[in-house]
Nucleic acid binder design. Structure first.
Lengths: 358, 358
DNA sequence: CAAGCGAATGAGACCGGTCTCAACATAGCG
DNA sequence: CGCTATGTTGAGACCGGTCTCATTCGCTTG
């Protein structure tokens, strides 16, 4: 049906109407399946549409329905399997409801995130799912609300913003992981995170930009304190932003006068670089150092040694976020303001007893 | 500037024009920065826009420019780190050029892919990047051409379709990997792929749906034949579509009368399940069985043992695909019809000598 | 000083759909 | 048979931008 000539201008309702010998309005009704159309006309129009290979222009449709059947997703890094999986959850859920997804990657950069929100709003997405890079810069998220479009926060909440958030309830598992280390006799327990902070040290007053990291830390600190151990500022490290920084930080930890005997890595990307650094220095896990990673992936069971991890149901987080957003778009009541999915500690072989000092 | 009341209707050029006391046309000129506008008017309009917090409706803009500044990407599985990285390459490149990306996941399902193409075309994306699930069903890809919008194939080419493809030149590395196994003395070399085929066996006449797998196989077969070894149909296996199937296939291979002494896994997802199956059966790599994986990821160097892999520059493939698409969108000449990036064999420790039969 | 030219501006068509409203036909009812 | 209720259709406004065209104005130039 497609002749070589007609690749230029797409056929429109008007074309179909003309061919079917009816008015534009009637053709639109027959095609859009709304209003009342007689059967004979409907068939005629549909045949004409078929002949002309008519496809509606969704842009035009969106423009006066006001809905684009598209949701925007803004994450820090799709390359990270964590967000990859979440994205899959969102995408599967959205597709099932007839929605498409526009994805924007911010590299955890606030300015990029601000631009991303603006662009998606301008593109008239129906709703937004955002893993906010910072709890402090939230004016742009307020804008989303002002625009009347629903916003769901992914993996992280933002205090002071009345938006629904879907998170992993990570603090209890972070406590469990820390407790496991404490049980094995460790007291010098380090935590390495990618988060950028004003300083790099730790204090009780520390305000973190990302709630999911705050929660990890809260869980760790509470477990430590329940055993009478004060968190040590030199063991809680931020700014592991890439391989180089992570390796440098790991090196610094190892060269402390009183180095840690166990390390908790805040995500899998960091874990990989920490482990590489340990291996390069000839340190073995868990003989020389115990290790726990946040996030579980298939490969975590196949490393040497298999890694003890805090497993997060991140696919389900994506599904939940999309589901809530879609419910709001459908005008249904959204029960929660803060959905939290449970994490679990998966014990494998990377935690061992404290090595005797040489 | 945002009053609680105005969340309903967004401000338009007409609003700005009224406030600035000029015509809609003039306001549009001042805002859109085209045509001729006097400085005084421009300032007045811009001030008005600022006051009203004006944001252009990209939908409306797209509708009569005909361009949406959006490209569509269709892949089999974003959850797979392979496509995750490619996506990142595409996304980074697109963003740098002011384009956004709509992502659709097909689960390697042809019908879903057909729908995806239709939806994206209807949404009036400016161009498409597709990793086609099948070389046989390509009418929907032809449609893209007919629509006048550029199409770039990612990772896979489609014979008979005159579209640009960006691929990894994988055959030579597949040969190298096979040669490495042959050098170690292996002759019973298995290949496990996720690809669905009519039968599950192998024959020379076999037509595969995905060129990147065809190429892997071609490289393997040519290396075998150069040593006078005929590929054995029972060692070349398809249909490893999920953990269960992969484990079943691996089990079947191991239970052959004359089982393989080496396995090549067509991608990292399969590799993980093969390795798990081996471990569950108490088989060690490389002592009991040698192993090579296509795709390299950070974790591949940290497994037990570190894996010998065929590393593919998949991020760069994404960048190249997006670059070519953007060039075509800009009306620039597109030199290649088929860009091919080199893969490399990375030797680690998962290949060893053939074990002596017990 | 009149003609000529370019810059600035406004009116309104247009993109491709949706949707309101009025016109008309037919059927049901008193 | 007249009147209204219901169903079907067409004309045209509208969404929010872009863009063409005609008009007006100021300035140069012969």
């Amino acid at each position: 049906m497609v002749e070589p000539g007609d690749r230029q201008r797409a056929t429109t309702v008007a074309d179909v109407a003309r061919r079917a010998g009816v008015s534009k309005a009637t053709a639109a009704r027959a095609l859009g399946d709304y209003g009342a159309v007689s059967d004979s006309v409907r068939e005629r129009v549909q045949a004409a549409a078929e002949d002309l290979d008519y496809r509606p222009n969704e842009l035009a449709r969106s423009m006066n329905t006001g809905r684009s059947k598209t949701i925007g997703v803004i994450v820090g890094d799709i390359e990270n399997g964590y967000f990859g999986l979440a994205m899959r959850g969102i995408s599967d859920t959205a597709k099932a409801a007839g929605y498409d997804v526009i994805l924007i990657n911010t590299s955890e950069n606030v300015q990029t995130e601000i631009d991303a929100v603006r662009v998606l709003l301008d593109k008239r997405v129906d709703g937004l799912i955002v893993a906010p890079a910072s709890s402090f810069h939230i004016e742009h998220l307020r804008r989303v609300d002002d625009s009347g479009r629903p916003l769901v926060l992914l993996d992280r909440r933002v205090p002071g913003l009345e938006a629904v958030s879907v998170e992993v309830d990570i603090a209890p598992s972070a406590s469990d992981a820390t407790a496991a280390l404490l049980d094995a006799g460790h007291t010098r327990i380090a935590f390495v995170s990618a988060l950028q902070t004003e300083g790099e040290g730790y204090s009780d007053r520390l305000q973190l930009r990302v709630s999911s990291v705050t929660d990890r830390l809260a869980g760790i600190v509470s477990a430590l304190r329940s055993r009478g151990i004060e968190p040590s500022a030199d063991l809680i490290r931020f700014g592991a932003l890439g391989p180089e920084r992570t390796r440098a930080i790991t090196g610094e930890l190892l060269e402390l006068e009183d180095p840690p005997t166990a390390i908790l890595a805040s995500d899998s990307l960091i874990a990989l670089d920490v482990l590489r650094t340990l291996r390069d220095r000839g340190l073995r896990v868990p003989d020389d150092l115990s290790f726990v990673m946040f996030d579980d992936f298939d490969w975590a069971a196949l490393t040497d040694p298999p890694l003890t991890v805090v497993a997060q149901p991140i696919y389900d987080v994506g599904v939940a976020a999309a589901t809530i957003l879609l419910r709001r778009l459908a005008g249904l009541p959204h029960d929660d303001v803060r959905a939290r999915l449970p994490a679990t500690l998966v014990l494998r072989d990377s935690v061992g007893p404290v090595p005797v000092r040489a």
